[in-house]
Write a protein that binds this DNA or RNA. Structure first.
Length: 573
RNA sequence: GCACUCAUAGUGAAAUGGAUAUCACAACGGUCUUCGGAACCGUUAGUUCAGGUUCGAAUCCUGAUGAGUGCACCA
């Protein structure tokens, strides 16, 4: 039996006990993983219920212990009462401790839609996008692991006043004609610069109250919707196509696959329609000062009145988001719809989802916002093209440089391509772990020189352990006998045994940090075992075979967990 | 002004209301005739403050202090 099966069996027996002994229906029982020193599973049920039943926790614990012992459960080795009344279970080791099939969660067999990596097409791909991608990709992989039917989409921002500013800037300098023959890479850079410059110029116009210029730009914005053929539209389409291509290749490189894209220009049309349909007295949206707004109920002090369609008759971000939501449910009808986004978006999300819930209940009920933190930087190495926000490219390169330096001669035998890929994988593992080790939603103060130490709790440490495990297996391949197994009660074996339960919690709570913490515990125990034992010993084949079985199981768990975090477990490094 | 987050060793993090608060980095001290030293072992050090709820609080409530973010036509 694996740990999940044992847990549910124990739950059943404990409920039976309370029923037969006290005629008491127990609703929730906490059975958790304790620190390894306290056994394999623990429950505080006696502490929780002693008051209700008017009996001391110790006494209750003793009764429950006796009851369970009399049941002679073959998966329980021993039961101990510890501390104020905890019941600690020591379990009989499972001969094959791996999880079997899919760990049960509420997502099994459900339709899950995940939206992540939704950048503004005209802005350079920055570190924030990287955090978004890591978080989003984790959700995707966790849901797949849970046996959900997962669809992944991205929602690129392809239309906005901001983009109009960029187009205007390009037009102003005749950038279209000048650059059409340049490479995509050069142009991408050019678009990013135009965007930033355009935003800056617009601010100047506003400060100088240059109404003519502002109106020209607003006209560009209207032209982008493409109902009339114009030079603006030509420039826009040229730039958009190159940017989309670049986005695809970037996301592909990061290991993210997308089943579809919904562009902001599409959601704008849908959103406008829906908001207009629901505008009027006694309806959800109201007209005010030429715009269409949403006023939340008095009780919702945490959200503010917001504009959904502006007085230019164009949907704002919130209006578009309603459209996006509608399209998502029309196209995919998900049971769970996840959105990974910057935690600054939380108030906006609350607002539009509150309004959306009044149009269709399930839009609200089935939508979940997973915020990820912001990354701030301490290091001075990075140029600040985006007002202090480094591009993803810059960050990856800094980490990569460190990896190349560390790897030195170790990868000499590899081809240049193989070496390059591996170094990139290791660099990415460092970044992914640095981000996913923290609870989603909190900001990360990132100092590449400190945060990315390659010793101890780090991506490279996990990769290194993987390489070590692979190398041991390769060396000892011929020495594994199928009949030898360990006692199953070493710390390492018990840690492996915990894995299915950890996995279940990680998926259920969307908690990557718990998986990372577990992995450091696991690899730490393994490396300790490695340092203190001779794993392959030709003079002791029985022991060797048992050890290799343990190596195999450790690797199995490590590989699977790393995969969910978006990291490839390397065979050598 | 209103609202939302957050506050854990020198640093970065972990901890469904549970047991002696976990892990790493840094500092200091050790391990190597060894299967991969990007390794292993040890020492020092911590829940912002004041109350409250509870058998039990880093976690829940109230207040103070400090930091971040959002508040009508940008996304």
């Amino acid at each position: 039996m694996n740990i999940l099966e044992i847990k549910s069996e124990l739950t059943k027996k404990i409920k039976e006990f309370f029923k037969s002994e006290f005629n008491f229906e127990l609703k929730n029982i906490n059975i958790e993983l304790p620190e390894l020193q306290f056994g394999d599973l623990t429950t505080n049920i006696c502490l929780q219920e002693s008051k209700n039943l008017n009996i001391s926790p110790q006494e209750l614990a003793l009764k429950l212990k006796t009851y369970l012992e009399n049941k002679k459960l073959d998966f329980v080795k021993s039961i101990e009462i510890k501390g104020p009344g905890f019941l600690n279970f020591s379990l009989t080791p499972d001969p094959s401790p791996r999880e079997r099939g899919v760990v049960p969660t509420k997502y099994f067999g459900k339709k899950v839609l995940v939206e992540h990596s939704s950048p503004n097409l005209f802005k350079p791909f920055n570190i924030g996008h990287l955090m978004n991608n890591f978080t989003g990709e984790f959700i995707v992989r966790a849901m797949k692991e849970a046996g959900a039917e997962v669809t992944t989409i991205s929602y690129p921002s392809d239309i906005s006043l901001g983009i109009a500013k960029a187009v205007y800037e390009i037009k102003k300098h005749d950038g279209y004609k000048k650059n059409i023959t340049k490479t995509d890479e050069e142009n991408i850079k050019y678009f990013g610069e135009s965007y930033i410059q355009g935003v800056k110029e617009y601010k100047n116009y506003e400060e100088n109250k240059d109404e003519d210029k502002i109106n020209e730009i607003k006209e560009v914005a209207n032209n982008l919707y493409g109902t009339v053929i114009s030079e603006d539209l030509d420039i826009y389409n040229w730039a958009k196509n190159i940017n989309v291509k670049y986005l695809f290749s970037n996301l592909e490189k990061l290991g993210s696959h997308f089943d579809g894209f919904i562009f902001e220009s599409e959601s704008a049309i849908e959103g406008k329609k829906i908001v207009l349909e629901n505008t009027g007295e006694d309806k959800i949206f109201q007209k005010s000062e030429g715009a269409i707004i949403y006023i939340p109920d008095e009780s919702r002090k945490d959200i503010n009145t917001a504009v959904f369609i502006n007085s230019e008759n164009n949907p704002t971000y919130l209006g578009k988001d309603i459209g996006l939501l509608s399209l998502k449910f029309k196209m995919y009808n998900p049971d769970f719809s996840f959105v990974a986004a910057d935690n600054e978006q939380t108030p906006h999300f609350r607002t539009f989802i509150d309004a959306a819930g009044k149009i269709q209940k399930k839009w609200e009920e089935n939508s979940f916002f997973i915020p990820h933190g912001r990354m701030t930087f301490k290091g001075k190495k990075m140029s600040s093209r985006l007002g202090g926000v480094p591009t993803a490219y810059e960050v990856i390169n800094i980490v990569l440089e460190e990896v190349v330096e560390k790897s030195g001669e170790k990868m000499e035998s590899m081809s240049e391509v193989e070496k390059g890929n591996l170094q990139r994988e290791i660099a990415m593992s460092a970044l992914r772990i640095a981000i996913l080790r923290s609870k989603p939603g909190v900001n990360i103060d990132f100092d590449p020189e400190k945060s990315l130490s390659f010793l101890g709790d780090s991506g490279p440490y996990l990769c290194y352990t993987s390489a070590r495990l692979h190398s041991l297996l390769e060396k000892g391949q011929s020495l594994i006998s199928p009949f030898s197994r360990g006692e199953g009660d070493s710390q390492l074996e018990r840690k492996i045994f915990q894995f299915p339960l950890i996995l279940q919690t990680v998926i259920e709570e969307i908690a990557p940090q718990k998986l990372v913490t577990y992995l450091f515990g696991l690899t730490g125990l393994f490396n300790n075992f490695y340092a203190n034992n001779k794993i392959i010993d030709e003079n002791n084949l029985e022991e060797t075979s048992r050890n290799l079985e343990l190596v195999k199981n450790t690797l199995h768990v490590l590989k699977k967990a790393l995969h969910i975090l978006g990291i490839v477990a390397p065979e050598k490094m």
